[in-house]
Structure formats: C-alpha cells, structure tokens
Amino acid sequence: MISSDVIRGYNDTFLLSLLTKGDSYGYDLSRQIRELTDDAYIIKETTMYSAFARLKKNGYITSYPGTVTQGKKRTYYSITENGRNYLKEKRQEWRITKEVVDKLVGGDNK
C-alpha cells in the first residue's frame, strides 16, 4: 500500500478524473480507486471528503442529494466545466512531473 504522504497532492485529481465518467457518490468512488489500483491505494474517508469540500469550494464539482437506495440517501457529485479545465491542467502537470521524477529517481533505464 502506498503511503498517503506521497500521493497527497493528487487526491483531488483522482476524484475529478473518475467523475468525468459520470456522476457518482462517496463509496462508489473510493471502491473504484481501490479496484483500479489493485488495492495499492485506498483513499481514507476523511481524505476523500476533505477533497470534496475543496473541489466544491473551488467550483470544480457540485453536489446533489441522490435518490434513496438501500435506506440511504447519498450525496452525489458532478464535475463542472471548470473542473474539466482544471483536470486538463493537472494532467499536463502530471506528464511533466512523471518525467522529472523518473529522470531523477528512476535511473535504472540508462
């Protein structure tokens, strides 16, 4: 399992990226993160909801109450146009970051 320190700056981006596939709610998003990474990264509840609060404050996502399923009324999240633009920037940034880290830390492919 990855330490959450390393990945801290990317939680917001993970959630935005998953929301481009459609609106979703907390448990479903955390499940997707775990499955997509083959259990290598598990997002903590508080980390996820901090990220939601931040994204909402910045206008990158909106939330709405979903219909009641299995006796629970879930809050759904939806990415906004602003969020999509921000995600585009973050993807670009990641491409560069990946190269930089690879060059300095990777090392073994030379």
């Binding site: 907390g26 448990y27 955390s30 499940r31 509840e45 508080t46 909801y49 629970k72 009324k73 809050t75």
Partner: peptide, 17 residues
C-alpha cells in the same frame, strides 16, 4: 449532519462488501 450521514453510509457499505 450530512457529512456524518454520508461517511457513515460509506463505512456501512464498505463493511457489507
């Protein structure tokens, strides 16, 4: 209150799974 309910809901889903 909503936050608490959402998180509790998630944890219960996780537990069931």
């Amino acid at each position: 209150v909503q936050l608490k309910a959402d998180i509790l809901g998630n944890l219960e889903d996780k537990y069931t799974a």
